[in-house]
Design a protein around this nucleic acid. Structure first.
Length: 164
DNA sequence: GCCAACGTTGGC
DNA sequence: GCCAACGTTGGC
């Protein structure tokens, strides 16, 4: 039996709400996090992101830019089929079907942040001073979130985590 | 709409 | 292996 990690980790996933919003995730109940086409993010999905991990769902390129909700990883990395779909904008003709380049995970919603925690508000929180999201040029679409940052965001958002 | 930051590509 | 050119991300 594979060793199971003792404690879960936490992440921030970016999404443009015009493309896919936290409300969409609530509506769908769960979703395939497809379209990741960056090696650093892919490596995190492949090596680090596990079932039960927490996800802050961030709306980028939006008005307002904000963490809109909390989600949970419900399926670990597996090949993203859109890389082999020639009609998909995520198609990658160089990817080998026997050794797919791109992976995805599934996530499900846990709780909305109501109201959403805007980027502007996050900037004023001392506990989040070192958060990757707030650093200049931090384009990574899947970012690690520290335990302290996670706790601070959930407290600010009024989200009570169920005991697990 | 602008453009800084960053990742990728490809010529050499 | 270097690095200039290019494309994309995403805040402002």
């Amino acid at each position: 039996m594979a060793a199971r990690r003792k404690s879960r980790r936490t992440w921030l996933f970016k999404s443009e709400p015009d493309v896919y919003s936290f409300d969409d995730l609530v509506r769908d109940g769960r979703t395939e996090w497809d379209g990741i086409r960056n090696y650093q993010a892919r490596n995190l999905l492949r090596d680090e992101v596990k079932v039960g991990d927490g996800v802050l769902f961030y709306h980028s390129n939006a008005k307002p830019m904000a963490i809109a909700g909390v989600a949970e990883v419900v399926r670990e990395a597996y090949p993203d089929p859109s890389q082999f779909d020639p009609r998909s904008k995520y198609a990658d003709p160089r990817s080998d079907p026997d050794d797919p380049t791109w992976l995805m995970v599934d996530i499900a919603p846990m709780a909305p942040l109501d109201p959403p925690l805007t980027r502007d508000a996050l900037k004023d929180v001392p506990a989040l001073a070192d958060m990757m999201l707030l650093k200049r040029g931090a384009r990574l679409s899947i970012q690690p979130v520290t335990a302290g940052e996670w706790k601070a965001v959930l407290a600010l958002g009024g989200v009570k985590e169920r005991r697990r």
